[in-house]
């Protein structure tokens, strides 16, 4: 088996960066994208500047991606933004931005990648949700709603494309110390952690473990699943 070709969105920092570095260390070829440039330099890393919240930008990106590769083994829809605000105070612009990146971005990247993933013997789509969905966290209405949509997309894509040899699953991390939660007060994070079965912060390694599981050829029969970290259900 040759090196896997994996597309990671939101690859330049945080969890996406950790996932990208892990895959590169395993010998995979990674096509990463983020809004800006990446300072990651590796012979098997190819970076693209993309606004995942823009359909036009995604269209241009996939056109450019095709020049680099005609097939993909996996798409990891990691790019996402969070937003904390009381529902009554959340402006429409925030709603639009969160849904454009989290939902539309996942939808469009998955749709555009289908044909390329179909060329793989073990095509994978891995989406990102959050424990804020099952915990129905106050202050995260729009963010959690967007990730609920991602979960439903995950399950329907799994059903529609299972016979195409493409699995689609999601991972729902519990709080990890990344830029996504840098604006959230420490007390709020601790309150959330205390609602988990395992009451501690997750690490990027915990997420990578699940990604490795979804990616491995032995997981051909695992699809439409949402796996939360920390014992949240």
């Amino acid at each position: 088996m040759g090196a896997r070709r994996i597309l990671v969105t939101g690859a330049s920092r945080g969890l996406g960066r950790a996932i990208t570095e892990h895959l590169l260390a395993k010998g995979d070829v990674v096509y990463g994208c983020s809004r800006g440039q990446s300072d990651l330099s590796h012979e098997n890393y190819h970076h693209f500047s993309v606004d995942i919240g823009s359909d036009e930008s995604i269209k241009t990106f996939f056109f450019e991606l095709r020049r680099a590769t005609r097939s993909l083994d996996a798409l990891i829809n990691n790019a996402g933004i969070a937003s904390m605000n009381a529902f009554a105070l959340t402006p429409p612009a925030t709603y639009q931005q969160v849904f454009n990146i989290n939902v539309q971005g996942t939808y469009l990247c998955s749709q555009k990648a289908l044909g390329m993933l179909r060329k793989s013997d073990h095509g994978r789509i891995i989406n990102f949700t959050t424990v804020a969905v099952p915990l129905q966290l106050e202050g995260e209405s729009i963010y959690a709603a967007s990730k609920s949509a991602v979960e439903t997309l995950t399950k329907v894509i799994a059903k529609e494309y299972g016979n195409f040899g493409i699995t689609c699953n999601a991972i729902g991390p519990s709080p990890i110390d990344t830029s996504l939660i840098k604006g959230v007060p420490a007390s709020k994070i601790q309150e959330l952690v205390q609602r988990q079965a395992i009451k501690k912060m997750a690490t990027p390694g915990d997420v990578i473990n699940v990604i490795d599981f979804y990616l491995q050829p032995g997981s051909d029969f695992i699809t439409g699943q949402v796996l939360y970290l920390g014992g949240v259900s």
Binding site: R66, G115, M116, R118, K119, N163, F164
Partner: peptide, 16 residues
């Protein structure tokens, strides 16, 4: 769904 698969394959071949 087979029609969908067929159209994806054709679009992919044309993109190639």
């Amino acid at each position: 769904m087979e029609l969908v698969g067929l159209l994806i394959s054709i679009e992919e071949a044309l993109l190639d």
